[in-house]
Nucleic acid binder design. Structure first.
Length: 217
DNA sequence: ATCCCGAGGG
DNA sequence: CCCTCTGGAT
């Protein structure tokens, strides 16, 4: 039952996802490093579609920390009211913007430590920014990566951090940079939480969980 | 009722 | 470790 995915199968796993989608892109909308950071902070426990709906009008007006501080807490809340947890997120975005201005010359830092020191930015959000904005091969373990890793046997762990470390150990270097994006897309559209679409999954034969009862052999 | 690119506080 | 923040989609 606790059968981990075989090493050779991990290679095949990513080769197939890569073949299907050679240059996977995230689905959060942003216009620069700062708006990327804000979008990822807003995306906690929310769908990216819902986040994009709110950030479209917001980023048309605001794309720098200075403009965000000038916009102010109450008006920011109006923009993001349709996103869950909007109260604390709005507070965090304003506070984080003030810190960027004060301590980082309004530039999004490229170090984990500085990123995680920002309010509303934890390990997962820092990993996303490091990966997307700065091209670092980080494994940002969100709800999708956690589920897909454990379900398939690719990277098993009881906590997101454990799964992150397992991914770093097990994913071959050649696939590391885009692993997060491939896995999240796979988790969102195929290896879904409620009704995983195993029949149309291109890596089902490598998966310990896949329902293979529909195929005869 | 459950899930969505979680983080912070107790 | 637990709880809270929170609205929209399915």
């Amino acid at each position: 039952m606790a059968r981990p995915m075989k090493k050779t199968d991990i290679e095949t796993f990513f080769a197939r996802l890569s073949d299907f989608n050679p240059a996977p892109r995230g689905e959060l909308d942003y216009v620069n490093h700062y708006t990327l950071l804000v979008a990822v902070v807003l995306s906690a426990q929310a769908t990216d579609v819902g986040v994009n709906k709110a950030t479209g009008p917001l980023f048309a007006l605001v794309e720098t920390p200075e403009q965000m501080v000038e916009l102010g807490l109450d008006r920011l809340k109006q923009f993001i009211k349709t996103i869950g947890l909007y109260n604390s997120k709005a507070k965090n975005v304003i506070a984080l913007s003030e810190i960027l201005i004060r301590e980082h010359k309004s530039v999004v830092p490229n170090e984990r430590k500085s990123l995680e020191a920002l309010p509303g930015v934890g390990r997962k959000t820092a990993n996303v920014v490091l990966n997307i904005a700065f091209g670092q091969p980080t494994m940002a373990v969100d709800t999708h990566l956690f589920r897909v890793g454990n379900r398939t046997g690719l990277a098993v762990g009881k906590t997101p951090l454990a799964v992150e470390l397992a991914l770093e150990r097990r994913v071959p270097d050649a696939w590391k940079l885009h692993a997060h994006q491939w896995l999240i897309l796979h988790g969102r559209y195929v290896c879904k939480a409620r009704k995983p679409d195993c029949p149309s999954c291109r890596v089902a034969d490598l998966c310990r969980f896949a329902d293979k009862t529909t195929t005869l052999d």
